[in-house]
Structures are given as structure tokens and as C-alpha cells.
């Protein structure tokens, strides 16, 4: 009974978790709200005052550094940025949902959740720094509206990466099934290629397709490519005060904090999946395989479909959805 509840919960999470998109800035973008934006939850509203005092504090600190050139305040700026990163990443986007969908459909080690979280954070930081400095020093013009326009294009690109990644995972899954030596199920502890007894191993280990480095890289690019508006804004404030080093440091620390949150969510996905697979394989061996296949194929198909739909919606306008 309880395992059925957990299996259902896991599958629901897979479906619900994928619907994410960073909303455009209503003031400086052109066009209406994103088709996928929805009203806030009470949790986010409860978090809002903390986010606000953190952003206000970041700007005050940047001004103080400008006025006093104090290294001590630079350290405080770094710490507040870290905290901001942790809290900010609790909101939508920033790759948590895409990364948990991926890990629900894969068999992963906990250390891989850290790798994924920090790879995303790295892409996020590099993307924000490149875009802000590029617009400020090279494109010039009005920063706020140019940043919004550029973000929309980058977001379209990240949706395309998600779709391609989903298609690639589906393709591999189907190909792996056709050739049993393709090993859709992981073989640990030096086992050879068994054509029989797959289910025994699965039951013991709860294994399905393993994480591929190429996929992890794709996830990180897709999830981290759209620069965080918060990190970008603090970098802009810093460089407009002539504090490039402080700005880059702040973005790096924000990303470090985000990496922490994203890794934690990814680790929860890995633990949750292990728990469900283990329990269902011990109770109903006949349910375990379909559940795992459902997660693998479902996860890949969801990534593909949502990437595709969001990509099309991005360029044909929100009226489509």
C-alpha cells in the first residue's frame, strides 16, 4: 500500500516538476506574461521579504565598498551573496526541476548530484558574467531592455538543448532495449552481460540506466544557460560603481549558493528514486521493472516534449499555449 503511494508520488513529481520557465521582467521586456507563469504559492510569498532584504543589503554593501574600499565589507558581500544564492535558487528555474527529472530517470550516485549542481552553477555564473559585461561594455544602449531581449533568446536556446537531450535519452533507451548487450540496466560489481536474471540484479540494486557524462553536461548547459536576473542585477550595480572585481566575486558566490540548493534537490531525487524502486522491487517484482522503465522513458519523453513545446512557444509567442 505504502509503496504504491510512494510510486505514485514519484511519478507525479516527475510530471509536475518539469513545468518551469523563468518569467520575463514585466517592466523591461516586450510582450505579455509567459504562458507558463502561474500565481505564487504561500511558501514563496513567505520567502519574499527575506529575498528583498538580501537584495537591498547587497546594493548597500556595494555602495559601502565603493565608498570605503574596505576588504572586510567585501567579505560580507561575498557571504551575503552566498546566502542570496541559496535562497534565490529555492524559486523556480535554476535547473532544480530539470535536474531532478533527469535523476529520477537515471541511476545515480549522490556524488553525481554535487557534480550536476556545481556544473549548473558554473554555467550560470559564466553566462551571467558574459552577458552583463557584454551588454554593458560592447552592446551598450539600455541595459535593462537589452538584457531582457537577450535572455529570451538564450532561454529559447536552452529549451532546444532540453528537447535534444530528451530525444537523445529516448533514442539511447530504445537502442539499449533492442540490443541486450547495450545494457540499459547497470551492471555493478563486475558482472558480465547476463541475458537472464536481469530482474534479480535490479531487485537487489534498484539500478536502471546510469548517468552519462555527456548527459550531465547537457543538463548543466540547459539548466544554467539563462542568466539569473538577480545575479546579473547585482553585477550591473557593481560595475556601474566601477567595482568589477566585487561584482564578479558576488556572482561567483551567488552561484556557489545556488549550486548547494540545486545539488540538494538532485540528491533528494536520487534518494527518493532509490527508496521507491527498492520497496516496489521487494514487494512486487513484476511492478519494479515497469516502474523503472516508466521513469526512464517517461523522464526522457517529458524532457523532449517540454523542451519542444517551450521552444515553439518561446518563438511563436505565449498566445500559442
Amino acid at each position: 500500500m505504502i509503496h504504491r503511494f510512494f510510486s505514485t508520488l514519484l511519478l507525479l513529481t516527475l510530471v509536475a516538476g518539469i513545468a518551469w520557465a523563468e518569467s520575463p521582467n514585466p517592466f523591461t521586456s516586450s510582450g505579455g506574461p509567459s504562458a507558463l507563469s502561474s500565481p505564487p504559492s504561500r511558501g514563496i510569498v513567505a520567502l519574499a521579504p527575506y529575498l528583498r532584504s538580501l537584495t537591498d543589503r547587497l546594493v548597500e554593501l556595494a555602495r559601502e565598498i565603493h565608498d570605503t574600499r574596505s576588504p572586510g565589507i567585501l567579505v560580507i558581500l561575498a557571504l551575503v551573496s552566498l546566502l542570496y544564492g541559496v535562497f534565490h535558487a529555492l524559486g523556480p528555474g535554476h535547473g532544480k526541476t530539470i535536474v531532478s527529472t533527469y535523476f529520477l530517470s537515471r541511476d545515480a550516485k549522490i556524488s553525481q548530484s554535487l557534480a550536476a549542481g556545481y556544473l549548473i552553477a558554473l554555467v550560470h555564473a559564466v553566462s551571467a558574467i558574459t552577458m552583463v559585461l557584454g551588454i554593458y561594455y560592447i552592446v551598450r544602449g539600455f541595459f535593462s531592455s537589452t538584457f531582457e531581449d537577450a535572455s529570451r533568446i538564450v532561454q529559447g536556446a536552452s529549451f532546444a538543448v532540453i528537447a535534444v537531450l530528451g530525444a537523445w535519452m529516448l533514442f539511447n533507451r530504445i537502442r539499449g532495449k533492442e540490443h541486450s548487450h547495450g545494457s540499459p540496466f547497470g551492471h555493478r560489481q563486475g558482472e558480465g552481460h547476463h541475458h537472464h536474471g536481469h530482474e534479480d540484479h535490479e531487485r537487489e540494486q534498484g539500478l536502471s540506466v546510469r548517468v552519462r557524462n555527456s548527459e550531465l553536461f547537457g543538463i548543466a548547459v540547459a539548466a544554467g544557460l539563462v542568466p539569473c536576473p538577480g545575479a546579473s542585477a547585482i553585477l550591473l550595480v557593481c560595475i556601474s560603481l566601477g567595482l568589477i572585481f566585487a561584482g564578479v566575486l558576488s556572482v561567483a558566490m551567488i552561484s556557489l549558493g545556488m549550486g548547494l540548493t540545486v545539488s540538494t534537490v538532485a540528491a533528494m531525487a536520487i534518494l527518493a528514486k532509490r527508496g521507491v524502486v527498492k520497496v516496489s522491487s521487494s514487494r512486487h517484482a513484476n511492478l519494479a521493472v515497469p516502474l523503472r522503465r516508466g521513469l526512464e522513458i517517461g523522464g526522457a519523453a517529458l524532457l523532449f516534449l517540454f523542451g519542444l513545446v517551450l521552444f515553439i512557444a518561446q518563438f511563436l509567442g505565449p498566445g500559442l499555449l
Partner: peptide, 16 residues
């Protein structure tokens, strides 16, 4: 982990 994870979309679907 599973329960927390399943609550995350509820938080995350809405913008921050």
C-alpha cells in the same frame, strides 16, 4: 527525500 521533492514543484511552479 521523496516527500520534500514532491513539494518542491508546488513551491517552484510559481515565480519568485
Amino acid at each position: 527525500a521523496l516527500v520534500l521533492l514532491s513539494m518542491q514543484p508546488v513551491l517552484a511552479i510559481s515565480a519568485h
